[in-house]
Simulated assay, not measured.
Amino acid sequence: MIARGMIEEITAALGANGLVLRGGFVFSDGEDAPHGASGFPAKSVLLVGQAGAAPWRHFLRWREKQPCTIANPLDSWSRQVIGDVAHAFGARAVSPSDKPYLPFQQWAVRAEGLRPSPLGILMHPQYGLWHAYRGALLFEDEIALPEQGEAIHLCDACVEKPCLKSCPVDAYSTEGFAYQACLAHVRGRNGEPCRSGGCLDRNACPYGTEYRYPSDIQAFHMAAFAGL
Rank of each mutant, 00 (worst) to 15 (best):
I2R: 13
R4C: 07
R4N: 03
M6T: 14
M6V: 15
E8N: 14
E8F: 10
E9A: 15
A16P: 01
A16T: 12
G18S: 06
L19H: 05
L19K: 03
L19Y: 06
V20T: 14
L21Q: 14
L21V: 15
G23Q: 00
G23E: 07
V26M: 01
V26W: 07
V26P: 01
V26L: 11
F27N: 00
D29W: 01
E31Q: 13
D32G: 06
A33Q: 11
H35I: 15
H35L: 12
G36N: 09
S38E: 14
S38I: 02
F40M: 12
S44P: 03
V45L: 15
L47F: 05
G49I: 02
Q50R: 13
A51H: 12
G52F: 11
P55G: 14
W56F: 01
R57N: 13
R57Y: 07
R61M: 12
Q66H: 08
P67Y: 07
C68E: 06
I70G: 01
A71I: 01
N72W: 00
S76T: 15
S76N: 08
S76L: 05
S76M: 02
W77V: 05
R79C: 00
V81Q: 07
G83R: 07
V85K: 01
A86F: 09
H87C: 01
A88T: 12
A88N: 12
F89A: 04
F89Y: 15
S95I: 08
P96Q: 01
P96L: 12
D98T: 08
P100E: 07
P100T: 04
Y101R: 11
L102T: 06
Q106K: 13
W107T: 01
A108M: 08
R110Q: 05
G113V: 02
P118Y: 00
L119W: 06
I121Q: 12
H124T: 05
P125R: 05
Q126M: 10
Y127Q: 14
Y127I: 04
G128P: 00
L129M: 04
L138S: 11
F139T: 01
F139C: 06
E140M: 05
E142K: 15
E142D: 13
E142A: 15
P146R: 10
E147Q: 14
Q148N: 09
Q148Y: 04
G149F: 11
E150T: 10
E150N: 10
A151Q: 09
C158H: 06
C158I: 13
C158G: 01
K161W: 09
C163H: 00
L164H: 08
S166L: 07
S166R: 15
S166V: 08
P168H: 09
D170F: 13
Y172G: 00
Y172Q: 02
Y172A: 08
F177P: 09
A178S: 04
Q180D: 13
C182W: 10
C182T: 12
L183K: 02
H185P: 07
G188I: 12
R189N: 14
N190Q: 14
N190T: 14
R195V: 08
S196D: 13
G198C: 06
R202M: 07
C205N: 03
C205Y: 03
T209I: 12
D216G: 01
D216E: 15
Q218R: 13
A219V: 11
F220L: 06
H221L: 11
F225L: 13
F225E: 05
A226N: 11
A226P: 03
G227F: 10
